[in-house]
C-alpha cells in the first residue's frame, strides 16, 4: 500500500524535474546563442552591427543592416498581402459560411499549414518568380528579375495564411453570441454588426495574432532563401533582391567554421532572431491567453 504512494511521489518529482528542465531549454537556447556571439559583441558596439551595411567577413567587417532591411521588406510584403485576405476570409468563415461549407474550408487551410517550407520554395521558383519576371516587373523596372523581395513576400504571405486564419477564428469565437444578436436585433446588417461589434470587440486579439504572424514570417528560412535572390544589398523597391537574416545563416553555415569571428557573427544573427521572436511571441501569447480564459 505504502509502495504505491512512494511510486506516485517518485514519478511526480521526476516529471517535475523534466518539466523544469524543458522550460529551461528556452533560456538555454538564448544563452547559448548569446554566449557564442559575445566575441563579436566585444569588438563592435551593438549599434554598429545593426546600422552598418558593410559585410566583408574576410576583413572582419560585419554589418547587418542590409540583412535586417531584407527581412523587414519581405515580412512587410507578406503581412500586407496576407492580412486583408485572411481578415476577410476569417470573417466569412466565422460569420457567413454555412457550417457545411466551413467544414470543407477549414481542413483545406489546415492542410496548407502542413506543407513543408521547401515545397513552398519550389512552388515559388516554379510559379511566383517567373510570373514576376515576365508579367509584373517589366511594367515597372528596366531590368526585370524574378528573384526579389516581392517573390519572397508572396511565398511567405501564402505560408502564413493558415496561422493567421486559425488565430483570427479563435479570437472571433471569443466574442459572445449575444453581442451579435443585440446588434442584429436593432436593425444592423450583418456587415455593420461585424464592423461595429465583432471587429471592435476583438481588436486586441487581432493585433496580438498579427504580431504572432509577423514573428513567424521573421524566422522563415528556406522558402524565402530560395526565391529572394540572396544579394546583400538594402532593397530599394519590391523588385530588388534581398537577403533576409535567416537566409544569411542558412547559406553560410559551411564557411562558418573557417573563422571564429564568422561563426560568432552568424550565431549573433541567430540570437537576434531568437530575441525578437521570443519577445513578440511572449507578449502576444499572454494577450491571447487572457482572451481564451474569458471564454472558459
Amino acid at each position: 500500500m505504502k509502495f504505491r504512494i512512494v511510486k506516485d511521489k517518485i514519478a511526480g518529482s521526476t516529471m517535475l524535474v523534466l518539466t523544469i528542465l524543458s522550460v529551461l531549454l528556452a533560456v538555454l537556447v538564448g544563452w547559448g546563442l548569446y554566449y557564442k556571439s559575445l566575441p563579436l559583441l566585444e569588438k563592435n558596439t551593438l549599434w554598429d552591427l545593426l546600422s552598418s551595411s558593410a559585410w566583408k567577413p574576410s576583413k572582419g567587417q560585419f554589418g547587418f543592416f542590409a540583412f535586417i532591411m531584407g527581412t523587414l521588406w519581405v515580412t512587410a510584403i507578406a503581412v500586407l498581402l496576407a492580412l486583408p485576405l485572411c481578415l476577410l476570409s476569417s470573417i466569412f468563415i466565422s460569420e457567413y459560411a454555412h457550417p457545411r461549407l466551413r467544414k470543407i474550408i477549414v481542413p483545406v487551410v489546415d492542410l496548407l499549414s502542413g506543407i513543408p517550407p521547401v515545397v513552398f520554395g519550389v512552388w515559388g521558383v516554379l510559379m511566383v518568380v517567373p510570373f514576376i519576371e515576365n508579367y509584373v516587373a517589366p511594367h515597372f523596372v528596366a531590368y526585370p528579375m524574378g528573384y526579389s523581395v516581392l517573390a519572397g513576400g508572396i511565398v511567405l504571405g501564402v505560408m502564413i495564411f493558415p496561422l493567421i486564419i486559425a488565430l483570427f477564428l479563435e479570437v472571433f469565437s471569443a466574442v459572445p453570441r449575444e453581442m451579435r444578436d443585440a446588434s442584429l436585433s436593432v436593425g444592423a446588417t450583418k456587415w455593420q454588426t461585424v464592423k461595429f461589434v465583432l471587429l471592435k470587440k476583438s481588436l486586441p486579439g487581432l493585433v496580438a495574432s498579427v504580431v504572432l504572424a509577423v514573428s513567424r514570417a521573421f524566422g522563415e528560412t528556406i522558402a524565402v532563401l530560395m526565391v529572394c535572390g540572396s544579394v546583400a544589398i538594402v532593397p530599394q523597391s519590391v523588385f530588388d533582391s534581398g537577403y533576409p537574416l535567416p537566409a544569411l545563416i542558412a547559406n553560410n553555415y559551411g564557411e562558418m567554421l573557417s573563422a571564429p569571428e564568422y561563426e560568432s557573427a552568424l550565431l549573433f544573427a541567430a540570437f537576434l532572431l531568437f530575441a525578437i521572436i521570443f519577445l513578440f511571441n511572449a507578449v502576444s501569447r499572454i494577450v491571447l491567453g487572457r482572451i481564451k480564459k474569458r471564454i472558459e
Partner: peptide, 25 residues
C-alpha cells in the same frame, strides 16, 4: 501556465534557430 506559455513561445521559434543552436551544442 508558465510551462504552457514557455511552450507557446518555443513553438513559434523558427527551425533555423534550433538548427543553429543544435550545431553549437
Amino acid at each position: 501556465n508558465l510551462t504552457r506559455l514557455g511552450y507557446d513561445v518555443l513553438f513559434g521559434m523558427p527551425s533555423i534557430v534550433y538548427g543553429a543552436f543544435g550545431f553549437t551544442l
